[in-house]
Amino acid sequence: MVENRPLANILTHAVLILGVFFLCFPVWMALVASTHGPEAMARAPIPLWFGDQGLANYREILSGGVAHAGGVPVGKMMLNSLLMALGITFGKIAVSLLAAFAIVYFRFPFRMGFFWMIFVTLMLPVEVRILPTYDVMVKLGMLNTWSGLIVPLIASATATFLFRQFFLTIPDELVEAARIDRAGPMRFFWDILLPLSRTNIAAIFIILFIYGWNQYLWPLIITNDEDLYTVVMGISRMVNAGESRPVWHLIMATSVLAMLPPVLVVLAMQRLFVKGLVETEK
């Protein structure tokens, strides 16, 4: 569409810039706050430009840990978050790839029934089934364990559905050619289906990694062992630190650190991500 209406142009740009401002301002504030001393954030006016405490703040949270948050060093919590996010991501991708593979390529009784059962769980958010899940975890003795943290979040209807849709676009002849080339089902999966799904896997990896990284409610109820605290939980504990005043400069520094891994993942996989969402290579 080629249009030349200056007024409309100005208006749309104004709206977009306003949107960018609203999106970026909190991030900016977090960056700024993380470089000031403890007092700056409690005083009006709140500073809008960087202070000189940045290095000291980051050193403090990375080494000692914040006493209000149980004294767990942020580095440790970041590592926990990373392990959990990666566990959830890889687990989800593995399970949903296999589930989609079964649903698309095998004929078994109630195949569509199973598919719809998986699909229906899309409509139930984690919060709705959190109590029964917790109950199951207690009975299995999985409280305060890595598997308790990760396994319940692994089943993914969304990823299963996306992979199913992708598998359906792969021509039947390819499957048949593989059968004639003496490739059994699992060999077909490894040698052909998986390489072809590469870009889709990358796209889903990003989405799931961020989902896993940002998990809050489930880690909160399944763990009370400080060794398993994740960084999102840590931030929340710092904020609700009982009587004492929240240490905003440290909270913000932690937040900035917590933002980094998802940003890095997106930057690293951006090209594949876009490719996976727009193009189907056949």
Partner: peptide, 11 residues
């Protein structure tokens, strides 16, 4: 077998 749409493994 040789297929109409070639059915080569694209990757």
């Amino acid at each position: 077998m040789v297929f109409q749409n070639y059915a080569l493994y694209p990757h």
